[in-house]
């Protein structure tokens, strides 16, 4: 086990603490990275409230809800995968990590489908944007376009994080399969889990802000 401790650390516990603190600090930067977009959202929602409500009504609430449930479930599977390592249950760890990858992929597939529908409806902001039928006649299409700009910006950045997350989970899954992790050493699993949960937390806020303000 000492082979996992790098030369400049005194012991495994110091290394674990350092890695976990490092990840948390990274997540704090991620909060502010997404934070710029959340600020933009707060700003324009204040200016164009009716347009944002109109835009929200053009999103598919059922798919959004299913996706939220999928992500919450994946957080559950990955935290059990870490528990598997803590209890030296390698098969459980591998199976649960695989489940996490599947759930992550399902989320991305549903998101992809939602995007494709938006493309067909010309709801992607830019030159070809057109609002089509509206629920509220009074809203300015330009302002609904701003809603969709933020929708694609926020969910797009989130999706990029999901893709990275699925990749990282796949890597630790292979390493777990090769027997790298034991109850004595599972630092990479723990910090991968932290990242995954963070991406989940971001979605927990995105979902009501984008889908539920009707």
């Amino acid at each position: 086990m000492s082979s996992h401790v790098a030369h400049h650390f005194d012991d495994a516990s110091q290394q674990f603490d350092a890695a976990r603190l490092g990840m948390w600090i990274f997540l704090a930067t991620e909060v502010l990275f997404f934070g710029g977009l959340f600020t933009g959202y707060a700003y324009y929602r204040t200016l164009y409230t009716p347009a944002f409500i109109e835009g929200s009504r053009h999103l598919d609430l059922v798919l959004g809800t299913i996706n939220t449930a999928v992500l919450l479930l994946s957080s559950f599977t990955i935290v059990l995968a870490i528990r598997g390592a803590q209890t030296d249950n390698r098969r459980a760890t591998i199976a649960l990590l695989a489940a996490t990858i599947v759930l992550g992929t399902v989320f991305l597939a549903i998101k992809g489908y939602e995007y494709s529908v938006k493309f067909e409806e010309h709801h992607v902001p830019g030159a070809s944007f057109s609002l089509g039928e509206t629920h509220d006649e009074a809203v300015e299409p330009r302002h609904v376009e701003m809603f969709f700009a933020l929708y694609f910006g926020m969910t797009g950045l989130h999706a990029v994080h999901m893709i990275i997350g699925v990749g990282v989970v796949a890597v630790v899954c292979v390493l777990a399969w090769r027997g790298h992790y034991t109850s004595q050493y599972y630092t990479p699993l723990e910090i991968t889990g932290l990242y995954w949960h963070f991406v989940d937390v971001v979605w927990v806020f995105l979902f009501p802000l984008l889908y539920l303000i009707r």
């Binding site: 603190l21 948390w24 909060v31 934070g35 710029g36 937390v201």
Partner: peptide
């Protein structure tokens, strides 16, 4: 999620601080 799944409930004070800091600073920005 943060308390249970991310183990902040059992985390050291500095981890808790790091967990709060990002949200606090975002609150300042907004």
């Amino acid at each position: 999620i943060v308390l249970f799944f991310m183990h902040v409930r059992h985390g050291s004070p500095i981890v808790r601080l790091a967990a709060v800091a990002g949200f606090l600073w975002l609150a300042l920005l907004i």
